[in-house]
Write a protein that binds this DNA or RNA. Sequence first.
DNA 1: CTTGAATGTGTAATCGGTTACAGGTTATTT
DNA 2: AAATAACCTGTAACCGATTACACATTCAAG
Lengths: 327, 327
Amino acid sequence: MATIKEVAKAAGVSVATVSRVMNQNGYVHEDTRRKVEDAIRELNYTPNEVARSLYKRKSKLIGLLLPDITNPYFPQLARGVEDRLQEQDFRLIFGNSDESRQKETDYLQTFLQNNVVGVISSTNAPDHDMYTGLGIPVVFLDRTLNDNPAVYADGREGGRQAATELVKRGSTNITIIQGPADVRPAMDRFHGAVEALESSGTSYEVLKTTSFSFTEAEGWAKELFRRYPDSDGIIASNDIVASAVLQEAVGLGRRVPQDVQIIGFDDIPLSRLLIPSLSTIHQPAYEMGREAADLIIRLIEGQYIESRHIQYAVEFIERQTTRKVES
Amino acid sequence: MATIKEVAKAAGVSVATVSRVMNQNGYVHEDTRRKVEDAIRELNYTPNEVARSLYKRKSKLIGLLLPDITNPYFPQLARGVEDRLQEQDFRLIFGNSDESRQKETDYLQTFLQNNVVGVISSTNAPDHDMYTGLGIPVVFLDRTLNDNPAVYADGREGGRQAATELVKRGSTNITIIQGPADVRPAMDRFHGAVEALESSGTSYEVLKTTSFSFTEAEGWAKELFRRYPDSDGIIASNDIVASAVLQEAVGLGRRVPQDVQIIGFDDIPLSRLLIPSLSTIHQPAYEMGREAADLIIRLIEGQYIESRHIQYAVEFIERQTTRKVES
DNA sequence: CTTGAATGTGTAATCGGTTACAGGTTATTT
DNA sequence: AAATAACCTGTAACCGATTACACATTCAAG
């Protein structure tokens, strides 16, 4: 890669002048500008972002921390973030945290060492020192706490809706699969569901689980039907778990939705491809990603922020694992 | 963030000495080392990677270019890459190329501007100038050409297996869904399937498509059964398309696998969760990602490379969309 | 015709590290 | 005891950009 010095020599000017034409500031004579531009084209010069970043003490890099890109909910989020950042010439340093505090701090550390100008994170510890004392803008994505800048969906309302829809469709003996206790959105959904079931006086059971992963989901699905064989309505902690439950139910000869209704969360792309297709609570993941990116950009540029707290509404998507409601 | 100068002052030494203890090279007296280490701890100092990168002309950053993280096959790959790199303290700059030449060059450009030390890319143009003249190691992932370093699966053999398994299980009128013509693995699979069908003398039809996306897959599934209603075996271009086909088939009242057998490619996590679960050609995506990362690390460190070309075998995964073979 | 403003360009400091080199001290050989 | 090697540490150059400042020239106003 050519350096600014080489361009300067080729154009017969000083590096300062080259810098001026690159950044379009200061005075540069028209003839000089042309000479420099020719040299730049000639040498195929692009400025070294590292040198630039060192002097200005900020880069065009933004850190993105997600629990696990392998969970089908996150690629949507990531893609939304990337698309928006890309438009503004920002680049992404990406890491999987596995919900581990250690990995999180490690990543944050190196983000800082690389002069990132902002961080977007799906963390369970927004109030941890590592975030509060970060010194650069942070946007929490799919998570929230207090009035930190955040983009997230209304999990509690989602839980309420899931429960309400099942009850409305005739389930009387519901089992809620409670996701990992340290994952905020999972608990919000859980509490929302409990709230709605309590207030409608529906009887329910709770099955506690500790992760969202594909591999373990099948185990919980089995346990669910072993422990609570009489369930006629299942509120899963997300669509992956719901899929596993659906498969187990069908394998056990239960008719869905006649014998058991199942509802998931997230509305990941696979949900509509299942047979029967999965009823679920939709979150606009791609949009949320974009919005988070947009927010961090505004924060970085010091723009006036109307609302640092962006909550998205969730929506019940009626498919085939819930019964039709008689109208 | 504290700088090396501040640490030096706090410890009462020069920056050179601090640098020596940080990098554990050169001579440093035991007492001095302790003083410096205390100061480092005191100030919570970590070196600025940007400054380091500028001087050494290389960073701890590696570029990863994938077509679309939203396609469920890629998160596995990405995760494999990330896990391996992470172990060696490398960080990832990530971008989605959408199979677009323009986006690819843009990203590669900025990767270079940020002093990345290597690139891992799933591209359809490994022989394009942008790669051949890059000046840093590149590993092609899920793609290959000539003897460039690459990690990929045997797509042609996969295609052959898919066709062979369907024929073995009694399909006599097969439709192959041909993926995007500019995506190498898609064409390899296609050719492999054609090859096997030709040599077994089985009659077949071909449906051409132009992408792998969720949204369009449903359209093709419909078209498939409109154009070739008599198909009793479908070789889909990947598992997403296969899922859409499966759903359409069931919707049309076809019994799977009795009336139609369906086979996909990739073995993405959702495949086993479908009902009936999807028979498919497995690729070890996570492993491939890890291996690609491993290879790029070795390339970067200039280690001796036994084989720059790593081909993984594929494997037929028998599930429920293919019939049992009588034994 | 003078003078202050606008224009044009180069020199050098700076960002925060790494390292070549010089110079001084201590330890080991002979 | 002198010579040599090993140890310890600081000064300054360097990486490739940006920009403050100085200085020169041209332009416009009075």
